[in-house]
């Protein structure tokens, strides 16, 4: 009789733990505020509104005007680099390349690299860089824009620090974050592209993010 009650306790504890195990969900980054919204039934309620990436428009490596529309319905990884960078960019893109290869056949994943070298990295330079890196096609966009538009987007929206610095070896300084953006243009992750373990985490997190939209 005692045995049975033991077993019952064990089972209920086990169930408790099992039910605690939630599906993993990625966090939201950036500013947030509460807003009163009307739901489908017209009932007013308070909801959290997260920071989103605003509309953008740049020239890509094929000199085609590319806007945020190209990322509609996709999760994407954004980063900031420049082609003549000899410090962290090669490592970042070496690592990002492995992510690209893993998700090559997944139409819901995209890659967007912004150059911060507005003087030299014109589209044809980006094209050559992409080809030499081994990237072809629209899945990985290399974008060129004016200093203002790119730097503002980086610092205010993707929360990545970038800048010109004449004392730096290559003339620019920037952080090597790979920023994960969801289909609603919210920031869901930032991974140091120079660290292999963080890039591995990114590879694990992309399917988690995609799973949120599979309902």
């Amino acid at each position: 009789m005692k045995n049975i009650s033991y077993i019952t306790i064990l089972i209920s504890v086990g169930l408790l733990f099992a039910s605690c195990k939630q599906e993993r969900k990625l966090p939201f980054y950036g500013e947030r505020h509460a807003e009163t919204v009307k739901d489908a039934a017209g009932v007013e309620k308070i909801d959290t509104v997260y920071q989103t990436i605003p509309a953008w428009s740049f020239l890509n490596q094929d000199s085609i005007v590319t806007t945020n529309k190209s990322t509609d319905g996709k999760v994407y990884v954004a980063d900031f680099f420049f082609t003549s960078c000899t410090t962290i960019c090669p490592t970042m893109h070496r690592n990002l390349m492995t992510v690209y290869n893993d998700f090559k056949s997944n139409p819901d994943v995209m890659f967007v690299s912004h150059t911060i070298d507005f003087k030299y990295d014109k589209p044809h330079v980006l094209k050559k860089y992409a080809q030499k890196l081994g990237v072809d096609g629209p899945k990985w966009q290399f974008l060129y824009g004016t200093k203002d538009s790119v730097y503002t987007l980086a610092e205010k929206n993707y929360l990545v620090a970038v800048g010109e610095d004449s004392t730096a070896k290559d003339g620019y300084i920037h952080q090597g974050y790979l920023v994960l953006i969801d289909k609603d243009r919210r920031i869901r992750g930032a991974y140091d592209g120079t660290k292999e373990d963080q890039v591995e985490q990114l590879k694990k997190d992309i399917p988690v993010l995609l799973a949120e939209y599979k309902k």
Binding site: T87, I88, T91, H93, Y129, K132, G134
Partner: peptide
């Protein structure tokens, strides 16, 4: 050197 030439000296695409 490793940034461009890689941890195993494998280089980087056609860049390095």
């Amino acid at each position: 050197c490793q940034n461009c030439h890689g941890v195993n000296g494998e280089g980087l695409g056609k860049l390095a």
